[in-house]
Design a binder for these strands. Structure first.
Lengths: 340, 340
DNA sequence: CTGAAAGCGCTAACAT
DNA sequence: ATGTTAGCGCTTTCAG
């Protein structure tokens, strides 16, 4: 039989109420008594039963992370795992636990209701990819403590946190400009790809700051695949007069790989003839030759922020959070700078 | 105020005991009454309070997944996330939840004690990378329901599940032999790399089956990095007389990339001159040219198996599990077969 | 500052 | 087959 709060109380010659307060650092117990009780609890090896605590205090100190978890997710979206790791660290450091729960955009509503109505958790971390309008309505209406990771694709009163993709775009463009490039091409995802759009916006802003303009004929959009990166780059090389561009910003790694392959296949030297930069410091970025310069986003940090913010929101439910976080960081490698 | 079991009982004109039994499909309630009660519960929107259930039944229906979760884990070990996703699916389908908890090999003991003594979970899923002898002693001594994912590096009475890496090695060698290769080289990790050793063992077994022998002078060991793959391959090419080998098995992707680079840099045609095969169908495997033939391991499936087995063990604690699972699957691509 | 006592909502053993 | 009741171990309000 494990030692309970009664054992501690008996040993300390007091009552369980006092022990509970002392152990929870209640203000209304003398310092002396608190120390005495804590010492005895320690000596007896007392560990409060979390099942009873959860029930009595009507709070789990648990957060549910709701997201899609299909087969191959680890390869399709490594960022999600990184976010998870960050969130776990932040929550654990505050005495909270993290539960992982998979669902689809179609099941997220019933899942969310199930979790909250059965009181499986005190709050929800939601991955933007499964957030629907219907979910937004439920969450708002039931005043569920929540935080969406990634900006939802529609406007709502949901609380969210996201990377500053525009700032990342500015950083990429700024670096190219600073290293003397003047004719920048941009290869990005389609119009539905918000991340790519935001990065493009940042590129434009930064170029405008230098009193120049991003040549619209050097902006391309396509699927985010390697093949598409190759296709677009080939088109670019054949259609555009020589030296019409001196650098390329690719919205993501896959496009960048395709682009690099196409450039090198045509005998273009990277970075001497054309510099190449992309986003997200995927491990792939170090396997190319030359290695890829990237604007890196710290997803672990994003997860940590999300965890912390959700806990603040649980304390102050009226708090409204819609914020960008995480400073993008430039990682310079061979695709933009010749080896020293 | 949410609807409780009392509301359902009142509405059904019966008592909470009966309602509880009916809702839990107790054998001792008439089918008629069960249906009636379930209908009413449904109509009232009754959701059992999990906090109370957990407390009353002295079981959380939760599993804790204990593993290292350092920064950059998503890139360093994507497999872990895939396992996690599989485990989540298996547990959820049985009414269990999955909690994620990070720790190091140094903290895993106190972490494990904390989780079990405070009754935060009914069982433990342990990643082999954090399993120490000390942990094995505690787990065994306290009879903690557990399952280690990956075979521990030392012998113990722990329950574990792992991929059959030897079988994967046999599969790789068998495929090369079947396609007419006779002189196979093996590039693997060091002696401490059990996975590489097991794969090598499988290769030997399969070659022996064909009444041949793996030439010891064609077996190389080194660090598992791209650079090392390149270095070893270069050594191999310069030291070994022409046509001394017609194929290479690399123990992992990084070695294979390095190897492929070295081969192509020397003008060796892959697969015409030398075929190349490796393990784990990492997305990287499709980014090379030619694309890499691999023996693929289904980590999602491994996670699912682990979840299911742990639940069986919770039901029958005396059950001893030490098993290999997951059938490796051959994914043929360009590095071993010319395009059709 | 400390003690007494009322729950928290459900399960399960026991009685009928 | 159904009703009754004793917990499950802790937190928290209220008295003193």
């Amino acid at each position: 039989m494990p030692v309970t709060i009664h054992d501690v109380a008996r040993e300390a010659g007091t009552t369980i109420g006092t022990v509970s307060k002392a152990l929870n650092n209640s203000h209304s117990i003398s310092g002396e008594r608190t120390v005495q009780i804590k010492t005895i609890a320690e000596r007896l090896g007392y560990r409060p039963n979390a099942r009873a605590q959860t029930f009595a205090r009507q709070a789990n100190r648990e957060i549910v992370f709701l997201t899609g978890l299909p087969r191959d997710i680890a390869f399709a979206n490594p960022h999600m795992f990184e976010i998870l790791a960050g969130a776990e660290a932040a929550l654990t450091s505050k005495g909270y636990g993290l539960k992982l729960r998979g669902c689809g955009a179609d099941t997220v509503c019933s899942m969310m209701k199930d979790v909250m109505e059965r009181k499986l958790a005190d709050g929800l971390l939601l991955h933007a990819s499964i957030v629907t309008r219907e979910l937004a309505v439920h969450v708002t209406h039931t005043e569920t403590p929540h935080l969406v990771i990634g900006k939802p694709g529609f406007s709502s009163s949901l609380c969210w946190i996201d990377n500053n993709n525009q700032l990342a775009g500015e950083l990429a463009a700024g670096y190219l400009l600073d290293s003397g490039k003047r004719k920048i091409a941009y290869i990005g995802g389609g119009d539905e790809d918000r991340i790519s759009q935001d990065r493009l916006e940042g590129v434009k802003v930064r170029i405008k700051e230098s009193r120049m303009c991003l040549d619209p004929s050097l902006v391309f959009k396509g699927e985010s695949t390697m093949a598409e990166g190759t296709r677009i780059t080939n088109g670019l090389l054949s259609r555009v007069p020589d030296a019409a561009f001196d650098s390329v910003i690719c919205a993501n790694n896959l496009l960048a790989f395709g682009c690099l392959n196409a450039l090198q296949a045509r005998g273009v030297r990277v970075p001497e003839d054309i510099a190449l930069i992309t986003f997200d410091d995927h491990p792939l970025a170090q396997l190319t030759n030359p290695m890829m310069t990237t604007v890196s986003i710290d997803m672990y940090d994003l997860g940590e922020q999300a965890g912390k913010l959700l806990l603040s929101k649980i304390r102050k439910p009226q708090m409204q959070i819609q914020t960008y976080t995480t400073i993008p960081r430039l990682v310079v490698r061979g695709s933009t700078a010749s080896a020293p």
